[in-house]
């Protein structure tokens, strides 16, 4: 689509887009660097043994403490057995950062940043044209208004995807360079035997659920930016909902209407390890609420933009 190309070129011709991309990469590099610097070393065999033996010593000391309950004693004995297993198998210590954990952290971090930065683009991509008056130049072309608006929405979403892809690829490269690339293993004791299990992190689910929540915020920012022609208003309202949505949900959770508000149905609540703030919500119900809101947001945005008089 020619019009998406236009928007794409305009977006990258402005410093904003590059600065925000740079920030995503810089923050990922910073956090990974900190983890590497302060984390437990597991690169060499000596380092692995040292880390494991430190932990062994610690647990032995704890075990020798007096007045230990039977359950606690059992716990330390298990820890000691598992750590000895790690030494025997040359596994990194339990607290060493593995690439899978690094990626899990990076994905969370990337998604938070993408939500904020893409909201900034979504809020400004229409309103800035009103601000500078270029909207007149854009809308006196033989192109229907809805096509122009759609091209801007598509460009915004593409920007979010670009940040996501660059962030994840960069994080993966960092992970390979900085951290242990062996699969993370978790150990457990079953019937006195140490059992080894590979840790599986549901990356895709994490990304998809959060992306659903991010998309809703983007649509909301896009709507406010288009209707009020003010990116400040759109950014602040959207970020407020993004950052305070959970808190606000807790306040209104007691009321019946709360479950019909889209941010109370945030899809990221259904990601593995999270749960909805309001009891009794199901994924299907939340998905439907989100879809209904998305349609309403889009309808308001497009109808308003097509009907309005341009006086900028």
């Amino acid at each position: 689509m020619q019009y998406v190309k236009n928007e794409w070129i305009k977006m990258w011709s402005q410093k904003n887009a590059w600065i925000m991309l740079g920030l995503v990469l810089a923050l990922l590099a910073f956090v990974s660097g900190m983890n590497k610097y302060y984390g437990v070393d597991s690169d060499t065999k000596e380092a692995r043994i040292e880390a494991n033996e430190n932990w062994l010593t610690h647990n032995n000391e704890m075990l020798n403490a007096e007045g230990m309950a039977e359950a606690d004693k059992q716990y330390y004995q298990d820890e000691i057995a598992m750590t000895e297993y790690r030494i025997a198998q040359d596994l990194p210590s339990f607290d060493a950062t593995m690439i899978s954990e690094h990626m899990e952290m990076s994905i969370t971090l990337t998604i938070v940043m993408i939500s904020i930065f893409t909201v900034v683009i979504a809020a400004g991509i229409v309103s800035s044209e009103f601000g500078t008056g270029t909207i007149k130049m854009l809308l006196t072309r033989p192109v229907a208004r809805w096509k122009i608006l759609l091209s801007k929405l598509v460009t915004t979403i593409l920007y979010g995807l670009t940040l996501m892809a660059s962030g994840l690829i960069f994080a993966y490269i960092l992970g390979i360079i900085l951290f242990n690339t062996d699969p993370a293993v978790s150990l457990s004791i079953v019937n006195g035997q140490v059992m080894e299990e590979t840790v599986k992190i549901p990356y895709l689910e994490m990304i998809l659920y959060s992306a659903g929540s991010t998309l809703m915020t983007i649509l909301f920012a896009f709507m406010i930016g288009t209707i009020f022609g003010s990116s400040t208003l759109a950014v602040s309202l959207s970020l407020f909902i993004l950052l305070m949505g959970s808190t606000a949900t807790m306040f209104i959770a007691q009321y019946d209407f709360a479950k019909y508000i889209w941010f109370a149905n945030d899809l990221s609540f259904y990601a593995p390890g999270s749960m909805p703030l309001i009891e009794g919500l199901t994924f299907t119900f939340s998905l439907i609420v989100n879809i209904v809101y998305a349609i309403v947001f889009l309808a308001i945005t497009f109808i308003y933009f097509m009907k309005r008089d341009i006086t900028a």
Partner: peptide, 16 residues
Amino acid sequence: YKFMSGYKNLQHFARM
């Protein structure tokens, strides 16, 4: 669009 060259502006409108 002040942040682009005159030529890029024209290309932009030409695409429409």
